[in-house]
Amino acid sequence: MSAGESKIALGGKTARTTPDLARDRRRGIVDGRGAALAAVLLLLALSLLPPIALLIGDPFLVVTATRIMIFAIAALSLDLVLGYGAMVSFGHAAFLGLGAYSVAILLANGTSDILIQTLVAILASALFALVTGAISLRTKGVYFIMITLAFGQMAYFFMVSLSAYGGDDGMTLAARSTLLGLPVLNSDLTLFYLTLGVLALAFVGLRAVIFSRFGRVLRGTRQNPVRMQAIGFQPFAYQLTAYVIAGALAGVAGVLLANQAEFVSPAYMSWQRSGELIVMVVLGGMGTLVGAIGGAIAFLLLEDWLAKFSEHWKLGLGVLLVCLVLFTRGGIAGGIERLFRRAPS
């Protein structure tokens, strides 16, 4: 039984018998070509950013944009789980951290090639996703949220207690990764275009996944797991596969994050990070992929912007979040959508 179905008639309000309709209304552009077009335009705009940064003489813009794109990759992967699989995973930052630590630990042991590091990161995060996902998916609703959160914390505390690799303080990387022995990633520009390439690949790849037979079953499971079971599908296997794919992709984002920051720390996998990733996905619109990218851009820019006003910027962020949920019925994305619809008239 899904969470929505069980909430019926509190204090005389009418029963919410069609939760899926309500849930789908908040997806701005569900599968349309508009989403793909928006993403292509967004990626093109991003690819033009370095020359623009050069023109206006602000090289730091490239660094900021790289960071934003890395989180966009992580948010994209979460969108597969959250938006298409309807699994509210609250431990997604753990995969980001596992990817980052794969780089740091391999580098400390003499392996600096990014291809090997990425392979290890993918294997490590996929394995972690497989084990924790298999246990978490035995449950639903509030249980699932709490358990993914707890597993995320488990990974966090594991890294905190790894004193050989910096423990609580984290560790600075001696150098960025190399590609086939060449230190090409030392240039911020190369890293920018590498990240952009990964982001584009992730978007195209996830889109292919979603429009495949697998993706259709996953979306069907989101809408009505009971009916999917009745027509002969095992939701568990599909949900777990999606969870593993998302975990592995977030691990790749972690590899890039470690290289961008040249530093790894357990803070990458704190539960606040996981919460922020959810906010990014919801802010941009769940289940649209391009929304996750837009959400990551919007969230991180908002964070930077709020931080300029006051050291207590988190207060503003919190107030904004609460207000968005309370005053935009049907979630944040729905509220923004309505805002845009109202604007032209």
């Binding site: 929505g4 959250l82 509210v88 959810i278 906010v279 919190g318 979040l321």
Partner: peptide
């Protein structure tokens, strides 16, 4: 105002509340 919302809304609003109260 959150009882009848879905779990995701509750997660977001209470996450926001944590940020507010901690700060």
């Amino acid at each position: 105002h959150l009882y009848e919302r879905d779990h995701l809304d509750q997660v977001l609003a209470t996450f926001g509340l944590i940020l507010i109260l901690n700060e």
